[in-house]
């Protein structure tokens, strides 16, 4: 590469070129600052400026291509699971809950609800999973859960038509916490309707009697204490999405 090639330029030409270059430079700098300010003034979609939300949704389209039932969260030996499992949220866990009357409600379509008891769920084939639970805050913890695969549950209760839809929506009995989950993630072989933690029934603060464990998502999607499950082709409401987080939140 011939770098040291000198050329002669008249002072006038050099001055003009410098002025033009710096004018363009400063204009672009100002444009960048202006664009940054405008970005934050854009109308918001679920608490995120619309242009950013559009890209986040596009990210979902792009990265969901990599989601595969063959891509499993790494499993760990049970001995590596922690005893003190972190409790990081209590929305939907309020004291207004009566365990004795609880039944899982599966809304097959409006006006057609299936009621399933905990014992009926426990009668289905059990799946144990020990995996690195990842919180959107950035921490993670190897934890041990037991329950029934959602895909097994759907097969047993003939939810074929429902699982052809794009999303599942889960809501706590008091309707204070709710998540929306894309169907491929819901049907992932590691997604379970969970009733056990460390081999014992779920503690109240971990969502007794039944919670979602979905390793391909951040913890915000692992809804505790499932009241109802419904299905739709539109995104069901999502608690943290409304507060500015990514809807997909897939790992």
């Amino acid at each position: 590469m011939d770098y040291k090639e000198e050329i002669l330029v008249s002072e006038k030409k050099l001055r003009n070129k410098t002025i033009i270059s710096f004018t363009v430079f400063i204009l672009l700098l100002a444009a960048a600052v202006f664009a940054w300010q405008k970005l934050h003034e854009q109308p918001k979609v679920a608490d995120v400026p619309k242009p950013l939300r559009t890209v986040l949704n596009a990210n979902e389209n792009f990265f969901s291509n990599f989601l595969s039932n063959n891509h499993l969260a790494k499993s760990f030996p049970v001995s590596q699971a922690v005893k003190n499992v972190r409790v990081n949220g209590n929305v939907g866990m309020e004291a207004d809950f009566d365990p004795s009357t609880w039944k899982l409600q599966v809304i097959r379509k409006p006006g057609d609800t299936l009621f399933v008891t905990l014992d009926e769920i426990k009668a289905l084939p059990k799946t144990d999973i020990v995996f690195d639970f990842k919180c959107i805050e950035g921490w993670s913890q190897v934890t041990h859960w037991g329950g029934v695969k959602f895909s097994d549950f759907a097969a047993k209760y003939n939810l074929n038509a429902q699982t052809q839809m794009k999303y599942a929506g889960l809501v706590t009995p008091n309707k204070k916490y709710y998540v929306g989950i894309d169907m491929p993630s819901m049907m992932h072989p590691q997604t379970i309707l969970c009733y056990e933690m460390n081999g014992k029934p779920l503690p109240m603060n971990q969502g007794y009697p039944l919670r979602l464990i979905i390793p391909v998502k951040y913890g915000i999607k692992h809804l505790k204490r499932i009241g109802t499950i419904s299905f739709s082709n539109e995104r069901p409401p999502d608690y943290w999405y409304n507060q500015g987080y990514d809807y997909y939140s897939g790992l």
């Binding site: 939300r53 805050e137 507060q243 990514d246």
Partner: peptide, 14 residues
């Protein structure tokens, strides 16, 4: 400002 941070991070990363 975690949510804000993530929304910026996963756009400007591109």
């Amino acid at each position: 400002r975690l949510a804000e941070g993530m929304s910026l991070h996963f756009v400007f990363m591109w």
